[in-house]
Design a protein around this nucleic acid. Structure first.
Lengths: 337, 337
DNA sequence: TTTATGTGTGAAAACGATTGTTCAAGGTTA
DNA sequence: TAACCTTGAACAATCGTTTTCACACATAAA
C-alpha cells in the first residue's frame, strides 16, 4: 500500500506537507497552490488510501462502531441491524458486528475486544444477565446506547419497547376472546425484555381474575428449539392451554413446527400470538396475530442517540426512550363462545 | 486505557521486557521468573488490554475480516452471515459487516474502506456488475473468497451454488405438473446468480419444447418490492401464467402480498416456487415448494477457504466450490390435469 | 540598516505496540 | 589478571499518521 512517505518522496516535499494538503489544511498552513496541485495529482495517480490503523492510533478515533447483538440470523435483530448499518454508514461510520449467542461471557469478551480495537462507540443489544462490563464503559465515558434490553440499575442511553404493555394487551385480547388457559413461552429469564413480558402476562391474568398456572409458564430462551420443545410439552398436557403466547418469532417458528407435527390447526385447536411480527407473518398458514416492534424507529433512534453522544462534549444527558409496540390482529386467535 | 508503558513504569522494567513477558516470549529472551511474575501481576491488576490499532500497525495483521453483502435483513444473507460470524470468531477473528444494498458503487467504496482499515481478508457476496476492484485485491494478494456470486473471468476462491441446475429442476418440475405458462421474476440482471437461474429456466423450457414468452420474464432485483410489482402485472395479464418462479425469498414475499391482494389462492389459482427456502417456508398459508441453498455449508466452506488462504504461504491454489441445491417439494404447485 | 511581518515548508514528537541489537554485570576459564 | 561466556534487561528503530514548533526567506516598516 502506498503511504504518505511515498507521495512525499515522489513530490519532493515532506510528509507533513503532504498530510496537510490531503487533509484539506493547506490554507491554514499556507501551502501554495502549486504544491497542492502536485501533491494531489500524485496522490490520485498512486491511488493513495490513508492507513486507518495509523490514523486511528494517532487521532484516537476510528469511525467504527461496535454492534453487539444476540443473533443476527434472528429476523428481528437482522432487521434492526440493517437499519443501523445504513444509518451509521451515512454518518461516515462502519460497524463491527458481534453475535453473542445469548451467551453472557461471550458478550463480555466481545465488548473487551471491540474496545481494544478502538471503536468510537457501542450499540448493544445485551444478553442482560450481567452489566458490570457495561458499567465499565459508562465509567470510561465511552459512547454507548443499549437497545431492546436495558438495566434499571444503569443510567445509560437506551431505546427499548414497552414490553409490558405489549404483552399485557396481547394477553388481554386473548382473554376478551374467551381464553382462560393461556400459556407463555418465555425467552431468556432474567433479561429485561423477558421479565417485562412475563409481568405483562401475569398482570393481565390477575386483572381478569384468572389464576396463574405455573405449568403454563415455560421456556428458557428466545430460540426456535425452545419453542418447539416447550410447545410439545404444552400440547400434550392433560389439560392443555387454549392459547400460547410466544415471546419471539423464533419461538413461534418452533411452536409452529410442534403444532404441525401434532396435526393440530391454528386457531381451531390452538390460538397463537407472537412477539416481533416478522415480514412473513401475514402469509403464514394462519396469518399470525402478533405484537409488532417498531424496528425502523428503534434503529434510527439508537443511531441518533449514539451520534449525539459521540459528537457531544461528553456532558450529554442520558436518554431513555421507550417506544410503544402495536398489536397486529390477524387470524391466529379463535373466539371461544 | 492502560498501556505497556504504564505497566513498565509501575514494574520498574522497560516496555520491551513487558511486551515480551505478555507475549509469552520470556523464555526466548531469557527474562527471569521473578520479572515475569511482577509484570504479569501488574498487567492483571491494571486490567491491561493491548491496543489493537498499534498492534495492527506494527504487525500488519488485524485479525479482522471484511464481510461484504447485499442486505443483511434478507434472511438468506443473514443466515449465512451468522454461520460465518460464528466460525470465524472461533478462529480468533471478527468481522466488519457492510451492506451494499445491491449498489455496485457502494460495494467498491466499502471494499476500499475495509482495505484501508487493514482487514486481513475479505468475504464478499458481490453485487456482480463490476469486478475491477476485486481484481485489484487479487493482484495485491489479499486473501479473498467470493460467496454466492462469482465471476467467470476471475480466478478467485469461491463458494457458490449451482443456480442453473437448481432452477432447471424447479422449472422441469413445474412442467411435469402440467404447467406451460411459467413466469420467472428475476433478481438483479447481469449478476452470475441471476444469469444462471435465467439460463436454467430457459433451458428447461426449451428442453420440453415450450416457447419462451418474453412477457413472462420480468423483474430487476432480489427485493420484495420487485416481487410485488411484477406479480401484480403478471397476474393481470390477459393470459396470465399458471406458475411463477421467484428467484429469491424476498421476491416471494412480494408475490405473496400481490396474490393476497388479488384474492387468489395458492396453488389453486397460481403455483409458486421460490429460491432460498427460508425457515418459515413450510408454515406459510400454502407450504412453499422451494429450491434450498445449503447455507450452513456455504458459510463454513467460505471460512475454511479464507483461513487457509490467510494462513498459507500465498501460493495456495484457488478453489472453486460449487454446491448443489435441493428442491424441497411442498404444496405450492398445483397438478394441472 | 535593523526590525517586524508574512509566507511556505520541514523536522521531530507522539500515538502504542514489537523486535533486532546492544550492553552491563557477574561468573568462568586460561 | 585478562579474556570470554552467560544472563537479564534496556535501547532504538519501526509501522503510517497528525500536529506542534521551528526555520528560512522575502517583503515592508522604522
Amino acid at each position: 500500500m502506498v503511504t504518505l512517505d511515498d507521495i512525499a518522496k515522489k513530490a519532493g516535499f515532506s510528509v507533513s506537507t503532504v498530510s496537510r494538503v490531503l487533509n484539506g489544511k493547506a490554507k491554514r498552513y499556507r501551502i501554495s497552490d502549486k504544491t497542492q496541485e502536485i501533491v494531489n495529482k500524485i496522490a490520485k495517480d498512486l491511488n493513495y488510501q490513508p492507513n486507518q490503523l495509523a490514523r486511528g492510533l494517532r487521532l484516537k478515533k476510528t469511525h467504527t462502531i461496535g454492534l453487539v447483538l444476540p443473533d443476527i440470523s434472528n429476523p428481528f435483530f437482522a432487521h434492526v441491524a440493517r437499519i443501523i448499518q445504513t444509518e451509521i454508514y451515512e454518518q461516515g461510520y462502519i460497524i463491527i458486528v458481534c453475535n453473542t449467542d445469548e451467551n453472557q461471557e461471550k458478550e463480555i469478551e466481545q465488548v473487551r475486544l471491540l474496545r481494544s480495537k478502538g471503536v468510537d462507540g457501542f450499540l448493544i443489544m445485551p444478553v442482560g444477565l450481567r452489566y458490570d462490563h457495561i458499567e465499565e464503559l459508562l465509567e470510561s465515558d465511552i459512547p454507548l446506547v443499549l437497545l431492546d434490553r436495558c438495566f434499571d440499575a444503569l443510567n445509560t442511553n437506551s431505546v427499548i419497547v414497552d414490553n409490558y404493555i405489549g404483552t399485557y394487551r396481547a394477553v388481554e385480547y386473548l382473554i376478551q376472546k374467551g381464553h382462560r388457559r393461556i400459556a407463555i413461552i418465555q425467552g431468556l429469564p432474567r433479561t429485561s425484555t423477558n421479565t417485562k413480558r412475563l409481568e405483562g402476562y401475569e398482570d393481565a391474568l390477575k386483572k381478569h381474575d384468572i389464576a396463574i398456572d405455573e405449568k403454563l409458564i415455560v421456556g428458557k430462551d428466545f430460540r426456535e428449539d425452545n419453542g418447539y420443545i416447550e410447545s410439545k410439552f404444552l400440547l400434550n398436557l392433560s389439560n392443555p392451554p387454549t392459547a400460547i403466547f410466544c415471546t419471539s418469532d423464533l419461538i413461534t417458528l418452533g411452536t409452529l413446527k410442534a403444532i404441525h407435527e401434532e396435526k393440530l390447526t391454528i386457531p381451531n385447536d390452538i390460538s397463537i400470538i407472537s412477539f416481533d411480527d416478522f415480514d412473513f407473518a401475514p402469509y403464514l398458514g394462519t396469518p399470525l396475530t402478533a405484537v409488532s416492534q417498531p424496528k425502523q424507529m428503534m434503529g434510527k433512534m439508537a443511531v441518533k442517540q449514539l451520534m449525539e453522544d459521540i459528537n457531544g462534549n461528553g456532558d450529554q444527558e442520558k436518554n431513555h426512550i421507550v417506544l410503544k409496540p402495536t398489536l397486529n390482529i390477524r387470524q391466529s386467535v379463535k373466539t371461544l363462545n
